[in-house]
Design a binder for these strands. Sequence first.
DNA 1: AAATATATTGTACAATTGTTCAATAAAATA
DNA 2: TATTTTATTGAACAATTGTACAATATATTT
Lengths: 183, 183
Amino acid sequence: MNKHDLRVLKTKQNIHSALTNLLKKKPLTHIKVTELCKEANINRGTFYFHYQEVGDVFKEFFEEIMLDLKKSYNEPYYHTDFLNGKTLDPKTVRIFHHIKKYEDFYKIVFSQEVSSEYYYMLFDEIRSFGLENEHAVHQGKLNNYLHSYSANAIIGLIIEWYRHDFQESADEMNVHLVNILKL
Amino acid sequence: MNKHDLRVLKTKQNIHSALTNLLKKKPLTHIKVTELCKEANINRGTFYFHYQEVGDVFKEFFEEIMLDLKKSYNEPYYHTDFLNGKTLDPKTVRIFHHIKKYEDFYKIVFSQEVSSEYYYMLFDEIRSFGLENEHAVHQGKLNNYLHSYSANAIIGLIIEWYRHDFQESADEMNVHLVNILKL
DNA sequence: AAATATATTGTACAATTGTTCAATAAAATA
DNA sequence: TATTTTATTGAACAATTGTACAATATATTT
């Protein structure tokens, strides 16, 4: 299976737009392989040649989104540094802006029904940023735990945000974080 | 459907022990309804009278485990307060001991393939403990975010623990946490 | 342009799913 | 104990899944 083969590209494009369409009508977990193939005008055998289940297609979407998260996190950031007189953390605020940008996808990622794999993709990405303040280097094992602690704490905020249906702005979320870190 | 009916109790007992047996042989996501019913010696129609999918049975297990977590968290705690000369947080250490106690279940809960619903059950339980230091009462919204932040931070540690195959002891985990909180 | 490689198709198949329903068995209730 | 209630069974059904394969179509390579 050569992912540069034009046939493969075309097939995957069809499947991708088919899934995008179906997601407007029903939740990911309700979409059948048969249904997706019909919408994409491809043979079911072709689907199983590339994927195992519908969720794998969504995973491909989310892999792209993770690339964007990595990219936007590493880009120089030109954003207002203040909101309501509070200083914004220039590192984490990019995460919140990223989430807001892909709000519709994260509503799926954080839903109860889907597999945890997307959660862990986000977790590992944020974890790789190494968010733990300025406290330089620690001993190896503690550092591992600290990374997981910090990354998942941020995701805890995002879960709460998700449960508020992403009502707050990204900047407001960052203010919440700053306030928590000040405690 | 009366859950006190002896027939229901017997049926659920059979299904429960059938699932326990099958889980020794294969992962949760590979267990079919048909297979579970054969193992439990009950009719497939009976299964669908009580559940929707195999995961619902595991959810019943986990609901009991969440009750135990709540219970052990509220019990007076008689445990050594020191390890390697470090003070242990008497609140959080119970969570770690609880996880260790049900290690086998949490290996399922934290696995990539299963639905996120178990994760959220744990999250909501830990969140309800209100772990945020001694900083008294804050404004309503910040408090919501703080609870989710703190609860998920702890779970971040547990995820890391899970990835180390739960090698460390509960007390060592608590030392990690204490060290992180000191930063 | 011809030869080669391989992705896609169509078909078939067994197994599982999810639902329905009347008959039956086993409870709870009077 | 007799009556009533209802959980369980078994059977049937359409739909979906997951796999296999030869035939075909459409790429890539020479």
